[in-house]
Design a protein around this nucleic acid. Sequence first.
DNA 1: GCAAAAGTGTTACCGGTACACCCATGC
DNA 2: GCATGGGTGTACCGGTAACACTTTTGC
Lengths: 249, 249
Amino acid sequence: MTISHKIISNISVDCVIFGFDFEKLNVLLVERELVDEKSGRILIKDFTLTGYHIFEDEDLDKAAYRILKDLTGFENIYLEQFTVFGKTDRVSNEKDQIWLTYLNQGFSERILTVGYFSLIDSTKVTLSHNERKIHWFPIDEAHNLEWAFDHKQIFMKALEVLRNKVRTEPIAFELLPERFTLTQLQKLYEAIYGTPIDKRNFRKKIVQMPFIVALKVKQKGVPHKPAQLFLFSREVFEKTKKERLGFLF
Amino acid sequence: MTISHKIISNISVDCVIFGFDFEKLNVLLVERELVDEKSGRILIKDFTLTGYHIFEDEDLDKAAYRILKDLTGFENIYLEQFTVFGKTDRVSNEKDQIWLTYLNQGFSERILTVGYFSLIDSTKVTLSHNERKIHWFPIDEAHNLEWAFDHKQIFMKALEVLRNKVRTEPIAFELLPERFTLTQLQKLYEAIYGTPIDKRNFRKKIVQMPFIVALKVKQKGVPHKPAQLFLFSREVFEKTKKERLGFLF
DNA sequence: GCAAAAGTGTTACCGGTACACCCATGC
DNA sequence: GCATGGGTGTACCGGTAACACTTTTGC
């Protein structure tokens, strides 16, 4: 299948990309900067999500995967559509209009954007910067940033959906390496919810889940007692699905 | 604010409308029928959700409210966007192409549709049929119907989202009259999940919720012991929100 | 008085929560 | 040997689940 690469001008996809550095939950943002050519003054300096228009003969989901692949080089990334943003004025504030004019898209037609969030194991990814300035920001700091368009709103909705989803589905593992320690998993949940969790109770609950499988391997080269490594088995999870009412945590 | 009424041709909204008749959970569908003018043979006979394109200067949510108002006459209906359907082939099967050709839209550009679900108190609504054949169908039967476009898929996703949402948010009340009995509420939950619930345990749990307020009024004219009427107070719900972790049922 | 649905309490069990100390490794 | 995080068990409490009979009304 070939792709026409002719874009649909009034529909785009924006991805809220979450990563975990074993300490904090982060979101990946792209710096947007516009400098006045004559004066050298900075007209715009803020942050956007990564997004792009969809192509005419491209499924919506495919467009989101394409955007992620362009950025990270990976294909099998957890991705989920969460909301469409369709207010007529979502891009009409002054700063954004200046930007769109600069891109020769100013005051063009209204654009509707579909929000996706994705979870990636940030230990694996080296970002392909290709001339863009991209950075990870802890989600706590993200609230105070200067955002482009309605991207702050999109981000906040993504975070809300993520928090809800993590309560009932085993998706947190997407943010960790394939083999992880229980402490890493615990820190991840703490980072997502922003609240401490009791270590012993956490371990009891996790270990009894049949789809969390203990490996025989342990950590190596750490300056303390090496931790046991675990694996999330989606296969076992799917098999035991009916018996459970939910992935209640 | 005036509305241009110029439609955006590649974006539409489809509403999955749920209602409750005190026995079953139903979905509202519109019959689609195409008869060959010469032979009189029925070419197409199936069911669609209610939907329409959005207008150029109309917020997405507004478009969904407009569609519902046209159908029911009411403005304050519970409505929630749940998913966008954006596969390139979502309307390309033969039957649908015949239909679109008939409407002079055949083989036109790809249409992306935004799914909304809405919950209405069906005791209040008299449907404004304006020449369309519309009917309530129990959700169990809906699976066996002949559906138009990808509307079966949209319906099933809506049902899934509804079931999840009802577990954590107090939205079931939208399907009942303002004053309701506990038995009605219980039947509603049973209808949504398709499973029986223990009466005494159900009542204990419900009555202790501060936002379920008992009225002094009782049913009248029923041929059995009249039931007490209750009310869901959104005000109390919002006030006590922080104290709760969720509307866990 | 009978049919039909409303309303009510107790017990047993399980899962959640709270909490403090010893262990294995690298340097 | 010391610093660092890994790993473990028990007791209490609260919520959930199972279960059967009496009450009030219209006819």
